[in-house]
Design a binder for these strands. Sequence first.
DNA 1: TTACATATATAACACTGTTAGGTATAAGGT
DNA 2: ACCTTATACCTAACAGTGTTATATATGTAA
Lengths: 115, 115
Amino acid sequence: MGIREKVNRELRSGLYTLFILKSVDALGETYGYEIIKYIEKKSNGKIKMKDATVYPVLRYLDRHKILRSFWATTGSGVPRKYYALTDEGKKLLKELMEDYRELEILAKNILEVKE
Amino acid sequence: MGIREKVNRELRSGLYTLFILKSVDALGETYGYEIIKYIEKKSNGKIKMKDATVYPVLRYLDRHKILRSFWATTGSGVPRKYYALTDEGKKLLKELMEDYRELEILAKNILEVKE
DNA sequence: TTACATATATAACACTGTTAGGTATAAGGT
DNA sequence: ACCTTATACCTAACAGTGTTATATATGTAA
């Protein structure tokens, strides 16, 4: 794999947890597959997270009380595991958004130097 | 370690290679230790990269002709290994900066939703 | 019946930052 | 003399995380 691709993957992967949390926030009660499609759509098809990336993250956040979850086996179709932000999750997301914006500024300081 | 700290570390680590390349670009011929201090200064002391992170990255980029390197043992003091961007490295940095700016926009699409 | 979309899960693997330790020179304080 | 700090580089072992590959299962369209 090329270096450009490698660095791009590193850049994206750092954002994954934040993307997932924000998606749950925007969608309300939602599930893994929908989150993947949501992010893909919002990024104009540019960011396609792997299911094997998303599902473990969701379970991790669930275990740590950032998300709550329940199975919905209503009617037909494959059962879905729904997730939603807990109060703790909402607080975390708020903090992470502040952290992200601060990091963006720091990155700008480093990356926009002309000398 | 807390989740907030974990996510923050993920966010930062994705930027490390780009920070290093941009630092070499800004400093001209430079060396690992100076890069670490440069990034620390530019980020107001907020980003302190570990030497064990920076040196392997520099050697990796050197091996892949993105950087060129030479030892300077002039006079007294500990010998320094200097690095500079190759033509290929300059091209890569330019591409990565475009990639980064594009990713920033994609991230904005996902993270700045109010609905 | 074939293929695709939907929907979740886990094991094995590769990659990468951290922790921890080692080596070495030089300056400043006690 | 001694100790600490700053400078300067390196590597091994560890932990964490995304990818690849695989498995399971339902519903729909060609």
